[in-house]
Design a binder for these strands. Structure first.
Lengths: 139, 139
DNA sequence: GGAGAATTCCATTTGCAAGTGGTAATTACC
DNA sequence: GGTAATTACCACTTGCAAATGGAATTCTCC
């Protein structure tokens, strides 16, 4: 499972996508609408800003907004920032690789299996962007 | 990422598969060969026994062994026992489903996306068994 | 330039996964 | 039936994710 932190990040981003190009959105508004603990959400949004996913403005009329068009940011990218590895094992992670002490990767079947699983996941998450979080208008 | 507990469980099972039908294997032997903290491994193997994946024998000559043929146990099954949900979000889990407070599932795009991711993962993990952990003999 | 509104930053608490220690129960063997 | 070997069980400690509290900083508007 994704951590709570990542789940909150995705929900917050969904909200910001829905309000894209409508000016800054208050943290408190996102927290209330998406049922996210306010102070925890502060930390998450700040981290996303430091990684150039979000932009913010202080003071009256301030708040958070997407830094670029929703199409530009993949879900895989967001998850790597907030969660860390997407792979299920450290030894098959592309961006957070750590070798196994107890096995020889050239022979390890666990390794092979979880590379397969990783690629199946990435095939979805690398090809979806924040734009895919936008709800279709009701008819 | 899978928890350490699950990673250890998979390694231990790999070892037990390699020694299938060769009598009980000591916890201490698995712990040493696979670099797993001994006492932690005890708990994990016990849990797998309670869920009928493993069998054990106490006293001299005792140890742990697979309860059934490796082909009978899917990796998805093992992970659900030790880790819990395989899905990345509670609201798309098949066995550990929990509804979202903050969204209407019939409209939520996050929901749809992570169902897709879940199915991609399950397509791998449901179709692999402990037998797939067995190393091919070197030539 | 002062007041209020918002993010930012830092420090602390809480809760659960990870890991440890010690003792009880069971079995095999002499 | 006694001893050694092994799993089973229970309670505790540690470390990190999750959540909270409060003060500092920045910005807008009058």
């Amino acid at each position: 499972m994704l951590s709570k932190k990542t789940q909150y990040a995705l929900k917050a981003l969904e909200y910001l996508v829905a309000h894209y190009n409508q000016g800054p959105v208050l943290i408190s508004e996102i927290a209330e609408k998406k049922h996210i603990p306010l102070k925890f959400l502060e930390n998450i949004l700040l981290e996303l800003r430091h990684h150039d996913i979000l932009d913010s403005k202080k003071g009256k009329g301030g708040g958070y907004m997407l830094r670029t068009e929703p199409e530009k940011t993949s879900l895989a990218n967001v998850i790597r920032i907030v969660e860390g590895p997407i792979a299920m094992l450290p030894c098959v992670s592309l961006y957070f690789y750590q070798p196994c002490e107890s096995c020889d990767q050239t022979q390890c079947r666990i390794h092979d299996l979880f590379i397969e699983a990783r690629d199946a996941i990435l095939n979805v998450l690398e090809n979806k962007t924040l734009a895919d979080l936008r709800q279709t208008a009701l008819v």
